[in-house]
Nucleic acid binder design. Sequence first.
DNA 1: GGTCAGGGTTAACCTAGGTTAATGAGCGGT
DNA 2: ACCGCTCATTAACCTAGGTTAACCCTGACC
Lengths: 199, 199
Amino acid sequence: MSAAKEILERLAGCPLPEWHHVEPLLRRKTLESGETLFLAGMAHPYVYFVETGIIKMIYETCEGDAWVKAFAAEDRFFASLAALLPGGVTSFSAVAACPAAVESLPYHLLDQLGDKHPQWQRALRKGFELYGFRKEARERDLLTLSAGERYQRFIEEYPHIAERVTDRDIAGYVRVTPVALSRIKSRIKLRQMEEKDAS
Amino acid sequence: MSAAKEILERLAGCPLPEWHHVEPLLRRKTLESGETLFLAGMAHPYVYFVETGIIKMIYETCEGDAWVKAFAAEDRFFASLAALLPGGVTSFSAVAACPAAVESLPYHLLDQLGDKHPQWQRALRKGFELYGFRKEARERDLLTLSAGERYQRFIEEYPHIAERVTDRDIAGYVRVTPVALSRIKSRIKLRQMEEKDAS
DNA sequence: GGTCAGGGTTAACCTAGGTTAATGAGCGGT
DNA sequence: ACCGCTCATTAACCTAGGTTAACCCTGACC
């Protein structure tokens, strides 16, 4: 069973018809750590499904910083929404944060199947619903939390990701420099020591 | 013609069937500036359509800050995605940033119509697509731009909103305090003066 | 007219995080 | 074993923004 099928049918909540039309267009790709899946600026209307490993989506600024928009680990799907819209291009790049295997499908195929079958349309809508839900949470964290709080929430919420990517990437996600993240970590350690001493 | 119908049919790209089933559940509400539409923490599975005015969506922290997630002006729709999901609650409040009139529809109705008619399902999917697209852009701005750049982008991209809300709300959107925004503005003014002097 | 409240500005001070640079640990390649 | 690389840490210094408080302006209300 392909990761794509599993993920899409979980979204739809039912089996999806015409999978035999999908199969031949499903591309599988394995990536080494650090290998690029796609680059910002490309027209890239594909949806990805993570089979194994972790993909990081990054915004690269002209100053050379690389801020991490999101991580996608096993069983997640992702895409550049901007690139799915007609004539759109990705504003971020996707890079393997550790050895990974992904599957991809062209969005126009999903779009067509959506117009033909309510089950597919439902899967797509649920997919966008979930995507929006995640983005809403990310936006809230960036707006309301301090850097230290964002770090703590990240390691609590995604421990399975935190332990498999570099601190550098975590810093990019938390939106601080690696130096600042190191300081934040030592501050936390210090506080934990103090609490232990007090008790 | 209601704002909701106009917005939804623009999303669908075609007329929507069974509008007579929608009409009786469509609620219209006018708000004075500062009046609350809904509060964070509520179960609130409704989609809103802005007829006139501007609604701000805000995250209120326990420290008493109010950060502005987004503004919705004329012809926009919005909802708390988290509250649309079964059992979910809003994590933000919606407040009129100036006198406003909105229409609302219960999401379960849209969900049902989506399951019945491909046109409705398409409208919903396009709606989520657009919502995700906007959130993606917001996330990028928060990750890659400095406070000053975020302010400049905001007044360039949404001049019709910028001139109708208070600086206090703009500061909340840019994610700085009103004091810092004032400083940013005077810094920009200073730079413009210098450029004029140089030329 | 006077008063009051809220928004915007400015100044003084403080803190968190950015910047640069030096140091050391881990690791693959030769 | 050695080199070279990347990553994490630490220190020194700097800057942007937070905090507090004083001030002014405007508009609503009495």
